[in-house]
Amino acid sequence: MQTPTPPRGIQPLWTRAFHALDIALLLVMVSSGLQIYNANPVFGGREGMTLPAPLLLGGWLGGGRQWHFAGMGLFALNLGIWIALLLRQRHRRLAALDDVSSLRASQSQPRRRLASHRLVYTAMLIVLSLALLSGLAMYKPASFWWLSGCFGNWQTLRTVHFATVPAMAALTLSHGVLSWRIGGLRLLRSMVG
């Protein structure tokens, strides 16, 4: 390859910055979101099971909303700029269809690992975008009636928004494990530090 690439294991500054910011913002969004969840659990309504306090941020519904809607703008900005930069500068690193085929067919384990990792982190971007869109549809269902309409009914919308939390938790774990197996602590460190 003729194009200059950064040394292996070293991510550009913007990737590291977006990673670090995203981890902090996601913690705020998830913990304050679960606080809001507790006011009327998505599953079961008023009789539904609530989540334990150590996972929550805000102290009460109003406090959870204060954090959630203060964080959302930064979260959206961070995600939007990140995806735009990725598509512009590093779109070759995003997953494509041939990753699925190499996952199916390739005999080389490193190659399969890389393919599955690309699928995992690309899926993270899609899930985060879905969290943002479903959140917007719930936050402003009158102004964005067309967006809310895309999700069918309100319960589906709430379920989709909530489901992005376990989905991101699982994907983040896989992302961490796969990064570790591909590049060890050096790669993990170079992602955020």
């Binding site: 913690l27 705020v28 913990s31 306090a53 150590p54 996972l55 929550l56 941020l57 805000g58 102290g59 109003g62 406090g63 204060q66 954090w67 809607f69 203060a70 964080g71 703008g73």
Partner: peptide, 21 residues
């Protein structure tokens, strides 16, 4: 700290709301 009880951060809620609202 966030994970192990955002209690210390809960009091900052009105502040972050004041900045974003």
């Amino acid at each position: 700290q966030l994970l192990l009880g955002g209690c210390a951060l809960n009091d900052l809620g009105p502040g972050v709301a004041g900045a974003s609202r």
